[in-house]
Design a protein around this nucleic acid. Structure first.
Length: 334
DNA sequence: GTCAACGTCGTC
DNA sequence: GACGACGTTGAC
């Protein structure tokens, strides 16, 4: 009987609505034990029985305050220097912001999310003054707003999933559906689509603010939470603005970009712009625990996990090709 | 003016 | 090379 109920519930969770799906996934992930060595108040269940898993899945959601306490304990743990901050691989696993709400899981001086519209992204990377069109038709990153901006106001106080829960499955899919990438978006389809088009989940795109979690239930009943690269980030807004090119754009943003970049030709050294398309650029959340985040006030540096891949390289060392791939010239010459 | 963040420099 | 501090730029 329990097995039957478990099966029914499992099917329900994975088919009814995305919200219920995410609820389950987040709950499972909350159960994922972490390895940074300090004790927490909750007791992870091993999942011998699915009904037990269900209990363990639901409790973290129901007991939201307890979960927030857990997150805060993480923050205090690292903030107090109780242990060296784990390296990147560990960060992705431990510091994954499984945020069940717009609330910040740990204190961060910038509130984890961008609070203002990012500056226009770099739409062309040039070498020797020659410009290349940005492959993505976007002139600026979409404004990253607190998640509850997009949600009904009552949501934050009650259930972070309620807005999604209030819609049926079909409507939910419609809401989540991101307009398909324009075929004219520089012809960069194929492998790069997922990268530019935001996170997808089970064949449908996810809107900004949805954290993608995937779980694998092994035959032994143990729940394993895995994450895609996009899981750590809030899916980027897929809305692309008008084509960004040095010659064709008539938007003010593009005009600015053009003026600020090589199209103006041999301008003095200027701040480079984030490419806006690499994975770090599309990440909207500051990790809150890296050195850049911790030293935000004095370091003036962007979160290490949001540092543009292009800006990490030395100026002039890369060239962007039309299909969106970036080639390292130094490597290219070898 | 405020704020985010790039560039640069000094230190380790 | 990594890191932190600071000046500065650019968007708002």
């Amino acid at each position: 009987m329990l097995s039957f109920l478990a099966t029914v519930f499992k099917a329900f969770c994975f088919s009814e609505t995305l919200s219920q799906m995410v609820l389950l996934l987040v709950s499972v992930c909350m159960e994922t034990p972490h390895t940074h060595g300090h004790a927490h108040s909750y007791t992870p269940t091993t999942g011998r029985d699915f009904s037990l898993q269900m209990d363990s899945c639901m409790n973290p959601v129901l007991d939201y305050s307890a979960q927030m306490e857990r997150y805060r304990s993480f923050a205090n743990f690292y903030k107090n220097g109780a242990a060296p901050f784990p390296q990147a691989a560990k960060i992705a696993r431990l510091a994954t912001p499984i945020f069940p709400s717009p609330m910040t899981p740990w204190s961060c001086d910038n509130g984890m999310l961008w609070g203002r519209k990012p500056p226009a992204v770099n739409v062309n990377v040039n070498v020797n003054g020659a410009h290349a069109h940005a492959h993505a038709h976007r002139t600026a990153m979409p404004r990253a707003e607190p998640l509850n901006v997009h949600m009904p106001s009552k949501m934050s106080a009650d259930n972070f999933l309620s807005p999604l829960s209030q819609v049926g499955g079909a409507e939910c899919m419609n809401r989540l559906k991101v307009p398909p990438q324009s075929s004219g978006s520089s012809g960069g389809g194929g492998a790069g689509e997922a990268e530019r088009g935001g996170a997808t989940f089970g064949g449908f795109a996810l809107p900004p603010g949805v954290i993608v979690m995937t779980t694998l239930h092994s035959g032994a009943g143990s729940s394993v939470a895995t994450m895609t690269d996009s899981a750590f980030q809030i899916a980027a807004d897929c809305q692309h603005s008008s084509s960004a090119s040095c010659s064709g754009s008539n938007t003010s943003t593009n005009a600015t970009v053009s003026a600020n970049n090589s199209c103006s030709g041999g301008a003095a050294k200027r701040k480079r712009k984030r490419c806006g398309v690499c994975a770090p650029c599309r990440r909207l959340i500051n990790c809150g625990v890296c050195s850049s985040c911790r030293n935000r006030k004095t370091g003036h540096q962007i979160c290490k996990f949001r540092k543009c891949e292009e800006l990490k390289k030395k100026p002039g060392s890369t060239v962007e090709v039309l299909n969106g791939e970036t080639l390292n010239l130094q490597h290219w010459r070898q």
